[in-house]
Amino acid sequence: MLDGLNWLLDPAHWTGSRGIPTRLLEHLAITGMTLLIAGVIALAAGLAIGHTRRGRGLVVGLSGALRAMPTLGLLVFIAVQFGFGVRLAIIPTLIVLVVLAIPPILAGAYAGVESVDPATVDASRALGLTEWQILWRVEFPLALPLIVGGLRSAMLQVVATATVAAYISLGGLGRFLFDALPLRDYPQMLAGALLVAALALILDLLFLLVGKAVLPTGVRAARGNRRSKTPTERTAA
């Protein structure tokens, strides 16, 4: 562990095109691009499914089917089969990462909208809101915590898989692992592992805070109430 830390603290590893800041930015860029593309697709689909309550089976089926799919296999298959090779490694990487990120975001958006009390939606309709207004002004804000939750788990998967993607000669923090592996440079591998883990933890914390911040005030107050009302449920266990 100390060797890994020493490697991290060596100033020589903090500069240049193979330095830690460059790799970190590459990793963040890949993660950001993926979340943007997957977010647009999955949020649109998830909100539509949640609002209309149609196509629920699609969400469940999609996440179930993808769970067993080995991402490393899919990645190298696309890279080799379509000849993207080393120079265009970003294309297969983005395809695989987007495919991976869609199910959790979709599930979050769908579950978020579905979790909105039907009485609230009916009340909005009775007040004369159009379906579009209901979706954006009622369902979307109330669904936000779960939407952020979906984005958060997508982000974790993308950060982790972007590391694996470095196997096909792309940048990012995974390079430290794969550059060091043939050399048996274990300190560098460990340093790479520590960096990826730290990045994932920091981003996770960030999403956690965002998730708390977007919780509508009314919901927060209601939750406080509900909790104080049901202490009896906790007595027996």
Partner: peptide, 30 residues
């Protein structure tokens, strides 16, 4: 990726040999 056996070997081996069929066998097997 770190040199252990299992169906993942077909992924690394298939990449080095640019042989998508081998990778496909690994995916389907998994």
């Amino acid at each position: 990726l770190v040199g252990m056996s299992g169906l993942g070997y077909l992924f690394t081996d298939g990449t080095q040999r640019s042989f998508p069929f081998e990778i496909g066998v690994g995916i389907v097997g998994t």
